[in-house]
Amino acid sequence: MKAKRMLKLFAVLFAMTLTAAACGSGDSTSTTTSECGSDLAVAAGESVTDLSVALVAPSAKDDVAFTQSMVDSLTRLGIEPQITDGTFVVEEAAAAIRGYAEDGIDIIVAHGTQYGGSLAEIAPDFPETSFIWGTSADNQGIANVFAYYPEADQGGYVNGLIAASIAGADGIGVVGPVEAGDAVAYIEGFTLGAEAGGSSTSIVYTGSFSDVALATTTAEAHAANGVAVLTGTSQSAVGAVNVATANDLPWFGTQSNTEAWSSDLTVASQVYHWDVVLADMIEKIEGGTLGGEAMALTLENGGLVMEFNGCYDLDSSVKSDAEAAIEDIIAGEIATK
């Protein structure tokens, strides 16, 4: 049994190494370009583990944003988790997490910063269970909790740099949710990138992750102010994408690929591939380490991938500038925060 598992893991690692080698060195795993009109559905990968996995997440599993990115990542790892989604209410999530732990699930992914407090209570009660929690740069010092977080500022910088080349002096409108977590990191990185590219951002935090009406109103305000590009984050951003479509403004996405919402106007999306850190974590869990550290998604480790929309006709020099910037970020030559 154990040997078989090891074999499987070896196979996956081997495949990944091959892919990396085939694509050439370094940065190219950090960008992809979709074929215009292609289906964005994520293909299930070869399963990396026989351990049972459950996912608890705040928004819908197919929200084209935060929660879906995790579901897609698990799918890529060949994992079909039990899912409790839509638990904006922390108490409901806590009940679900505890329920999965009591049911003997091996790995419970608590996909929401706001679940940290509940985990601090629950995890010590189930020392045999591993909890994977994010986004957070700190595992709260609990032995059976892994934390994960995206260095969202990196992709934000790249998005901002590209956006500046389109917007120029007209500026870029940013629709932010709550001023916290990876939303802030993304928006600050984006602003640095935009400024490096000679443009500027106007930022509004609506105060809600989920209020589509407010996000819509905010995007309309930006549009009325005459910005040339829009970007935004959180599941409420769908409202802003609709405004971008209505006003024919290019859109930059983050967390998940937003081409599903705006196939013509999405220029690029920073996509979280949680699977990179998840694979590391699962490997450690199988090795008997149930937690104890925080892992970051970066452009370097392939946790952050810039996905360019093949339907959007982006100037090739801009794209190569962006790819150069990615290399510089990986090399540590550009500071994104």
């Binding site: 001023e179 935090y205 407010l214 930006h222 102010n225």
Partner: peptide
């Protein structure tokens, strides 16, 4: 008030740090 608040924020009249208060 909502429209004004959003617009003031989009024009940087309300500072970023005050966004939570402005939301109320």
């Amino acid at each position: 008030v909502t429209a004004t608040r959003i617009r003031w924020q989009s024009l940087d009249i309300i500072p970023q740090g005050a966004s939570d208060i402005a939301a109320m």
